[in-house]
Amino acid sequence: MDSETRQPRSPRWTVVIGCLVAGLLTFAVVTVVLTAVLDPLIWPSLLVSLPLGFATGSAVAAVGYYYATRGPESGVDRRTIGIGIVAFFLVFGLLVGGLYALGQQRLDESYESTYEYRVTLSADQTLENATVYVPVPVEGGQSRLGEQFVESVRYERHTPSVRGYDGEPAPVNFTYDVVETEHGPMLSISADRIEVSTVYYRSVENETTGWNERISPDAYDPSDPSMGVRNDGSFTFTVTTASADRIDTADPFDDEPMLSRSYNRSAVECTFGADSRHRCYEYDGRVYANYDTANDTTVYLSSELSGRNEWFSGGWSGNEYREWVHVELQGPQDGWYLAEGELEVGSGSYRE
């Protein structure tokens, strides 16, 4: 065949560009697919998928360039090339499918759903003959979390981190019950005496560290910013229980535990998050308090319920709903009081 009938060869730069595009597309596809598939297995999965994607994309570009620039006399076996391409995608598909199945198994094994009910009682001075009622989780007319609270709850007392503080305070003999009231079921917490100690301190610093050092009440100067006051009157009571089923955190109103009882609930804008499931509300709650104390005593009461679904996927992820009723009271009390209620549903991420 003479030069007039020979097919012109493609310019070399078009071959280079074509091979680079093929390599980049391969790199992108492999990296994205492996990142998603490996996410439940490896964190961060991008550190594995990036080098594998780069190696695969580079190989595709190099092999493509090699075959595209071989002369006609080299006798390229197109059938062999086709079989190689099919074999590559078959192996890659099987590998991805196996990793995906393994990842889903890991997700299912790590998946857990839990409810947590927490009550906080905080006083800055001693309370006598104290009884408080706070909202309790209710589901289908019953309060399984309330019953668990009565049977097994233990409190955590928060003590001042001050040098010279005299160790652990005397334990408080709390009693618990779930009682029926005009505002629905409530959790009752009672104690004959809740002794609260006040600790005055001064902040001390040297060249490397700092600490709080106890001082006498007479040495305390409220105008001195290095001095402060703390107490040991803050108590947290918590119970947690696992759910065999996934919790409906996006719409818990019908089938999930909710705190009793809410009044004048209205939708408000959430502080963060724009998902359609994510909604926030405010409402009026009720608490009961009866105790003797000094007129300038401040008591904080709160009742909090949360339901969470969690799983491992490139780190721990999940979603939740959370309800919170809280109030601050001054001086001796005897009666029902208005409390602020907040409800947030559909917070977090969801597995579609």
Score class of each variant (00 low, 15 high):
S349C: 04
L127I: 11
V32M: 15
D2C: 14
V172D: 02
Y111P: 03
G71N: 04
E344V: 14
Q7R: 11
P257T: 09
G64W: 09
T56M: 05
V345D: 06
L50G: 03
G23H: 07
G331Q: 08
G71P: 11
E168I: 05
P257H: 12
A294P: 09
E340C: 03
A242H: 08
E156Y: 06
Q105S: 14
Q125N: 15
W43H: 14
S243Q: 07
R230Y: 10
L329K: 05
G167C: 06
T238R: 15
E256A: 14
A294Q: 13
R12Q: 04
S276A: 15
H326F: 08
P222K: 12
S143L: 08
G285F: 06
R265E: 12
G75L: 05
A61N: 09
D218A: 15
T26G: 11
L127S: 06
T35L: 00
T31S: 15
R9P: 03
R202Q: 11
V199G: 09
V268A: 05
E323Q: 13
Y281A: 05
A28M: 15
D177F: 08
L47V: 10
P44R: 09
C280Y: 01
I215K: 02
L187A: 01
V32F: 15
V204P: 01
L127E: 07
P72D: 14
A130R: 00
V29E: 07
Q333V: 09
L95H: 10
V37N: 01
L145Q: 11
S347I: 10
L102V: 11
P225H: 02
E213C: 04
A339R: 01
E182M: 07
V299L: 13
S122M: 14
S197Q: 11
S58E: 00
G331H: 07
V15Q: 14
F27A: 08
F272G: 14
V37I: 09
P217Y: 11
L95E: 01
P222W: 12
E139P: 06
R9Y: 10
F27D: 03
G164D: 00
L107E: 10
E156D: 13
Y155H: 02
G335P: 01
L259V: 10
Y283I: 02
S303V: 02
S313A: 12
Y65R: 08
P137N: 10
V134K: 03
D2L: 12
A22R: 04
N129A: 07
R202V: 10
G141E: 04
W211F: 06
G97A: 06
T208V: 15
G228V: 00
V30R: 09
G53D: 04
V134T: 12
